[in-house]
Structures are given as structure tokens and as C-alpha cells.
Design a protein around this nucleic acid. Structure first.
Lengths: 208, 208
DNA sequence: AACCCAATGTGATAAATGTTACTGTCCCTT
DNA sequence: AAGGGACAGTAACATTTATCACATTGGGTT
């Protein structure tokens, strides 16, 4: 029933795959589970083999600002970075689609860096791609107004789900962009008038 | 005349210091120099031994959004991340105080990860601290209004210069926060009325 | 069908931020 | 000393975003 690890992480060496299989534990979580909260200590590095996780930055007032998705074949960069020093998490991770994850203890994460070239490259590439993604998020809030940010948001969700119909409420979008529902409803209406989307109840169809 | 490398990078092993001294080149740049532009290919990892560098994210419209400072004992995380794949720079780096930097070729940056534990730890710690700093920047723009962002900005500049008198124009602050001078002038005036700062020409004195 | 409730639409208004225009001040250069 | 230019103060107005109030819609439940 399980997809072989080699398929999900094609760049991992066979030795690394063996090491993972004999040392790491696989766990499953249902949609809605909070995998990690801001401030919690990180004890494992997390690899995703199935499902989807959303990463948020939490505001002091309870805001949940959407940062990025984690998907199969990816790892949580924060858990890698913090793992080496057992630091506190700076982010919140929420399961949005039932996931299977591989938990790798801190000590191994560090040890494998020296032993497995393919692990080293995977970690570095994870850092790089997440850093870039976060920089794009900075762009979107630093330079753009809400209508452009909304389009950016929708595009990223479309890319993540691989479909054109997003099942998401205006309220949820508003929360994740740290604005209010009314603003999102109005901007979506304008986008509909421009022919960019088609609005249905609990669903946004992306036309372009 | 040179401060020994060991003083600036106390955690580097003696072997690593020797490797740096025999392989890397030291260069000096004057204040105002653009060390790296967005889109340029990165050929070296940069360590700072003297002076200060500011890192910006550039907007399409020419905006220069301030991200963080680089100071002696630190390295450019982007140059490390991108170095391994010779990627394009996602940021712009401007010298703000005459600097001396050590340029480390791509190949060595990567090679040393395996050979020198202290280099490995330095690189990982650089990633971690920069990632955290960028997340704080995200916070400031995602959750806070301009007056709080201004206070955050001033605090970071105070920390970087280690003094309470910032020599900076309102226009420069406005550019680096991607807003307009008038807004900054107004907010600074309010801060002065609240007793947080004292305003002089080309200088802002931080009182608290 | 009658009802409930979450989701959405929309107008009115407030607050924050951006823009324009103009003034004054200080410093440097000539 | 006179002129020019960068810097700063401020008023008036425009735009964007946030907030409040309330209406409407549609799906599910009883």
C-alpha cells in the first residue's frame, strides 16, 4: 500500500533510504491536526510522504499568516534548521490533507549530513528553496497591495492543489492574509468582473 | 593592522583558519558600493571581517526594502545557499560602512562542509539565524502598522550601530520601508511627542 | 415546508496610508 | 553674501483598507 520512499525522494541514495527505514518512524495525522505550535521545542525533522501541511507565522493577536505549503517529497526547513540546536519553533504547522510523515531524530539529521551526500544536498536544497519562497512572501506584502496579494495567494494554492477549483471560504483567505472577510469578498467580486475567477459557494474557480 | 581571523570568527578551528588564509582572497569595498545585485550569479561566499553591509529585497518598481545587516563575524546566507548551485542572487547587498570581506570560491564552501566541523556549524547557524530574522521581518509587515514597523526599524538600526544616534534621513527610512517620506516624518514627529526620540537634522536620537 | 446557520454581498463610515503641493531651514559652493 | 540643493514640516486631499451593520443566499436538518 505504501509508495516506496525511493519514488517520493528520488534523489536519496539507497544507503540513505535504508538508514531512514531502519531508524525513522512513520506517523499519520488527520486533516486539522496542529503538528507544531509556535514556541514548541523541535525534537524531530519531518519529511512528508503523503498529504499536505500548511505553515503559518502566528501573530501576537492570534493571527495566522500563511507562509507556504509542505508536500510529499519535501521537508520542514524549520525543523531542520532548529533541529541542530533543539531550538523553539518559529512557526505553526497545520495538516490540511491527511498526511504521512517520517520523523527523524535530531541526532541522525546531523549525523547523516556527513555520511550521506544525498541527504546533505537535500537539506541544502530545502533551505534554499524555502528561503526563496519566504523572500517572495516578503515581496508580496512589502511591495504589493491587497488585490495583488490575493492573486498571489490564489496562485500558490492552485499550484499546491494542482487544480483550478479551490474549496476555501472568504473568511479563511482573510485570516491567512491577515485582513478582513469583507475586503476579500469585495476583491474577489472585482476579480470575477475581470473574468479571472468564477465564484461559487465555498469554492473559487480559477479561470486564468 | 589586521585583526586576526580567530578573533572575528572565534568558533573556527585552526585548520579552518589556515584553509581560509591559504585559499580565500580578502577584498575591500567602500561605503556605497553595491556588492551584489538581484539577478546576478553568485560566484563566492562572502565573510565579513570589517564594516557593515545592508541587505535589501528589490521591488519591480525600483523599491529597496531593507531586510537585515551583515556585520563582522557574519556571512551572507544567500551567498551560501545559492553557492552550491551557482544560483542567481535574490537580494541586493550595499556597503554602508567600508568593509573588508573574505571571498570563498563555491567549490571550497561545499568541500569544507565535510572537512571542517566548525565550518559546517557556522553555515547551519548562519542559515538558522537569517531565517529567523526574515521571519521577524515578515511579522512586522504582515501584522503591524507603519508606526510599529518604524519602531522596529529604528531598533534594528540601533542594535546594528551600537549607538543611539542614527544618521539617516527620513527619505532613506521611507525608501527602506517602502513608504513615503511624509509618512515617516509624521510618525517620527509623533514619536518625538511621545518622548521616544529626539529629532535633529540628518540625525535621530533614540531615547528609549 | 419551516428553520437554522454558515457563507456571502453590500453600503456607510472610520482610520491609515499615499500623494500633491508648497514652505522653511540648513549647509555647501561659488 | 548669494544661490542652489538636500532635508524636513505640514496642510489638503485621494486612495486603500478596516470596521460596523445588516441583508441575502443556499444547503442541510428536523
Amino acid at each position: 500500500m505504501q509508495t516506496p520512499l525511493k519514488n517520493i525522494f528520488p534523489n536519496f541514495s539507497n544507503e540513505l533510504i535504508s538508514a531512514i527505514e531502519s531508524n525513522a518512524s512513520m506517523q499519520n495525522f488527520e486533516a486539522g491536526t496542529i503538528l507544531m505550535r509556535t514556541g514548541q521545542y523541535i525534537k524531530n525533522t519531518v519529511l512528508i510522504t503523503k498529504g499536505k501541511i500548511k505553515i503559518y507565522r502566528e501573530g501576537e493577536d492570534g493571527g495566522e499568516f500563511f507562509m507556504y505549503y509542505l508536500q510529499p517529497g519535501q521537508a520542514c526547513a524549520i525543523s531542520m534548521i532548529c533541529a541542530t540546536k533543539s531550538e523553539k519553533s518559529q512557526i505553526m504547522a497545520k495538516v490540511v490533507e491527511d498526511v504521512s510523515v517520517i520523523m527523524i531524530p535530531l541526532t541522525l539529521m546531523d549525523k547523516w549530513m556527513m555520511e550521506h551526500r544525498s541527504w546533505y544536498e537535500f537539506v541544502i536544497e530545502t533551505y534554499r528553496s524555502r528561503f526563496e519562497e519566504v523572500l517572495e512572501v516578503v515581496d508580496s506584502i512589502a511591495f504589493r497591495s491587497m488585490d495583488e496579494r490575493l492573486e498571489f495567494y490564489l496562485k500558490r494554492h492552485k499550484d499546491a492543489c494542482g487544480c483550478t477549483e479551490l474549496k476555501i471560504s472568504h473568511q479563511e483567505i482573510a485570516t491567512e492574509l491577515n485582513t478582513s472577510r469583507e475586503v476579500i469578498s469585495r476583491l474577489l467580486k472585482k476579480m470575477e468582473q475581470r473574468g479571472l475567477v468564477k465564484l461559487n459557494r465555498n469554492q473559487i474557480e480559477l479561470l486564468k
